[in-house]
């Protein structure tokens, strides 16, 4: 039992959990409104969206690459989702399906081009970021789609006490991604490729296939976030996804992911999102300039990578 406890304490996310609990208690103490049903609803709402964004990036960090186009894919799918319903009058399930298929195609493109060309995913996704975003702007001419079906709006606004209905989607995603990386062959293969691509290849893993699947998965998660954003905003904003980039890296890195690949933590990433959400919320509740979020977010990334490095070195020193 004590062994279990120690293992728990050594896990990537244990320190984060403590931080979250302490910060939560502190906030509740400073500002009782923090624990109000409505505030919890607001918190969970932003958590719902951001955790999907973070997972979308985390999947790619796991293979040791990065995906700058997460936001652009989310945005493109968001306006497609809203646009096809408004302009073509597509039924909701079909529009959702279309959004997911579009995302899968975007991810497929990222993955195939990266793998076949051997060019770094950074450059490829920088290019596709512009392409996807460019198509988005080109189609919408930067104007939102307003006529969202009532059912979608209702889904975006519905809640049970402090819990938004929407939370179901990210909850499923979290469980799914956790199972993928901890209990499924594909997930283990993704991690193996990220840790040592050559070794993975020699172990008979089809590296190309794994890389492409990871990109598709990333795009689908981003698309889910994009469509949830439409439901939440109650309109198809072309700017959806514009401000996802920093957050998408911040949460996995705070959660202990190694950017070189091969190691990510789903629980850590979720806690990373919680921390970001709390900071955001605290600044609003305490009436501080929202741009401090920007500042703190950056500082948090730096602190997290420093901490990860330090832990790594200490582990080496112990071994």
């Amino acid at each position: 039992m004590t062994d279990r406890l120690r293992a728990l304490a050594l896990a990537d996310w244990f320190g984060l959990l403590v931080v979250v609990l302490v910060a939560g208690a502190l906030l509740a103490f400073l500002q009782p409104a923090f624990l109000s049903t409505y505030n919890i609803y607001v918190l969970l709402l932003s958590f719902s969206l951001w955790v999907l964004v973070a997972l979308a990036q985390m999947v790619i960090i796991a293979i040791g690459q990065m995906n700058l186009s997460v936001g652009a894919i989310g945005g493109l799918v968001a306006i497609t989702f809203a646009g096809t319903m408004e302009v073509w009058g597509l039924p909701i399930p079909l529009a959702v399906l279309l959004g997911l298929v579009l995302a899968a195609l975007c991810g497929l493109f990222n993955g195939v081009v990266t793998h076949v060309s051997g060019i770094s995913a950074f450059i490829i996704t920088l290019a596709t970021l512009s392409i996807f975003k460019g198509i988005n702007i080109g189609i919408t001419e930067a104007q939102p789609f307003y006529a969202i079906p009532d059912a979608v709006k209702a889904f975006g606004a519905a809640r049970l006490g402090g819990v938004p209905y929407m939370l179901v989607v990210p909850a499923l995603a979290i469980v799914g991604v956790w199972l993928l990386f901890n209990r499924m062959v594909l997930g283990r293969q993704i991690l193996a490729v990220g840790a040592n691509r050559h070794a993975a290849e020699l172990s008979g893993i089809r590296v190309g296939r794994v890389v492409v699947i990871a990109h598709v998965l990333s795009a689908v998660l981003a698309a889910t976030a994009g469509m949830l954003a439409v439901a939440r905003l109650q309109l198809g904003q072309p700017t959806i996804g514009d401000d996802w980039l920093i957050l998408s890296f911040a949460a996995p890195v705070i959660g202990g992911a190694i950017l070189a690949g091969g190691h990510v933590s789903v629980i850590g990433t979720c806690l990373g999102v919680v921390i970001v959400t709390l900071i955001n919320n605290a600044l609003v509740l305490l009436g501080i300039d929202p741009f401090f979020v920007q500042l703190l977010l950056g500082a948090l990334i730096l602190a997290a990578v420093m901490l990860n490095r330090w832990r790594e070195r200490r582990r080496e020193a112990l071994a």
Binding site: I246, L259, D289, F291, Q294
Partner: peptide, 26 residues
């Protein structure tokens, strides 16, 4: 920061782009 922390400058400058800009606006 890049040299001291020993991580890729991608992550360092990702953080500082946010920090510098946030501080400037504030």
């Amino acid at each position: 920061l890049t040299v001291r922390i020993g991580v890729h400058s991608f992550i360092v400058t990702l953080a500082t782009m946010s920090i510098f800009f946030g501080a400037m606006i504030v």
